[in-house]
Structures are given as C-alpha cells and as structure tokens.
Deep mutational scan, measured.
Amino acid sequence: DNLVIALHSYEPSHDGDLGFEKGEQLRILEQSGEWWKAQSLTTGQEGFIPFNFVAKA
C-alpha cells in the first residue's frame, strides 16, 4: 500500500495543503513533483504534502 510516516510535523501554508504531526501515517493518493496528494489515516482529511517530510512506512 502507499503508506508513509511523517518525519516532521507540517503546518499548511496554502489552501489545499494537508497539515500533519510527526509520526502520523498517511496514504499517498498521487505522486507528482515535490507535492504529493495524501490522506491522513488519523483525520481522514486529504490534501497536498511536501514529499520530503515523509518516508515509506
């Protein structure tokens, strides 16, 4: 599955970004460039995340 774990917390800075906490698990929905579309397994919310803040779970 496309699961990743957050290496750092991220505060959203643009509409459509997904904020998350360090250690949170996310499911990657789309990989494109440096911003990936993801869904939080904690909150169920979707949005874009910086790819370098996460690692394969």
Score class of each variant (00 low, 15 high):
17 D>R: 09
39 Q>C: 08
26 L>N: 00
35 W>T: 06
17 D>W: 14
43 T>E: 02
55 A>F: 08
54 V>W: 03
37 K>V: 11
22 K>N: 03
22 K>H: 05
2 N>V: 12
57 A>Q: 11
25 Q>I: 15
44 G>V: 01
10 Y>S: 02
39 Q>M: 12
33 G>R: 04
45 Q>S: 08
14 H>R: 15
12 P>M: 04
5 I>N: 03
3 L>Y: 11
38 A>M: 04
28 I>D: 01
15 D>Y: 10
28 I>L: 09
13 S>I: 15
13 S>P: 06
43 T>G: 03
41 L>H: 02
16 G>M: 08
20 F>S: 00
3 L>A: 03
31 Q>A: 13
29 L>Y: 05
53 F>Q: 06
43 T>R: 03
5 I>S: 03
42 T>Y: 08
55 A>N: 06
23 G>I: 02
18 L>I: 08
29 L>V: 08
54 V>P: 02
30 E>A: 09
57 A>G: 09
52 N>F: 10
34 E>A: 13
12 P>L: 03
5 I>W: 07
13 S>Y: 12
25 Q>W: 15
6 A>R: 01
19 G>C: 07
52 N>V: 06
28 I>N: 00
51 F>L: 09
13 S>A: 13
29 L>F: 06
24 E>H: 05
1 D>G: 10
1 D>Q: 10
7 L>M: 08
12 P>S: 14
25 Q>D: 03
47 G>N: 00
2 N>F: 15
23 G>A: 03
8 H>F: 14
57 A>E: 11
44 G>N: 07
47 G>R: 00
6 A>Q: 01
47 G>T: 01
48 F>G: 03
19 G>D: 02
38 A>P: 00
54 V>F: 07
33 G>D: 05
32 S>R: 12
24 E>I: 02
14 H>F: 10
53 F>C: 15
46 E>M: 14
34 E>G: 09
10 Y>N: 02
43 T>V: 01
16 G>I: 05
44 G>W: 06
9 S>L: 04
40 S>A: 05
25 Q>K: 14
7 L>D: 02
23 G>H: 05
27 R>E: 03
56 K>D: 11
51 F>S: 15
21 E>Y: 11
16 G>H: 15
38 A>V: 14
31 Q>I: 09
55 A>M: 12
30 E>T: 10
32 S>P: 04
47 G>H: 02
40 S>P: 00
17 D>N: 10
37 K>T: 07
39 Q>E: 08
5 I>M: 06
26 L>H: 00
10 Y>K: 06
38 A>Y: 03
42 T>C: 10
41 L>I: 12
6 A>G: 05
51 F>H: 15
26 L>Q: 00
44 G>I: 02
26 L>K: 00
35 W>Y: 11
57 A>N: 09
39 Q>P: 01
27 R>Y: 09
6 A>T: 07
2 N>I: 14
37 K>I: 11
34 E>L: 13
22 K>L: 07
42 T>P: 03
45 Q>V: 08
23 G>R: 02
47 G>D: 00
46 E>S: 13
49 I>F: 07
11 E>K: 14
25 Q>G: 07
26 L>M: 08
4 V>P: 00
44 G>D: 05
30 E>M: 08
20 F>Y: 02
3 L>F: 11
3 L>C: 07
8 H>E: 11
22 K>D: 03
56 K>Q: 11
24 E>A: 06
2 N>S: 10
18 L>E: 00
10 Y>F: 12
23 G>E: 03
30 E>Y: 11
11 E>Y: 14
6 A>D: 00
50 P>N: 08
36 W>S: 02
3 L>T: 07
20 F>D: 00
53 F>Y: 14
5 I>P: 00
36 W>M: 07
15 D>G: 09
26 L>V: 02
10 Y>M: 04
12 P>Y: 04
53 F>L: 12
2 N>W: 13
6 A>H: 02
38 A>R: 00
42 T>H: 11
28 I>P: 01
35 W>A: 04
39 Q>D: 01
3 L>D: 04
50 P>Y: 11
48 F>H: 07
43 T>F: 00
22 K>M: 09
21 E>R: 14
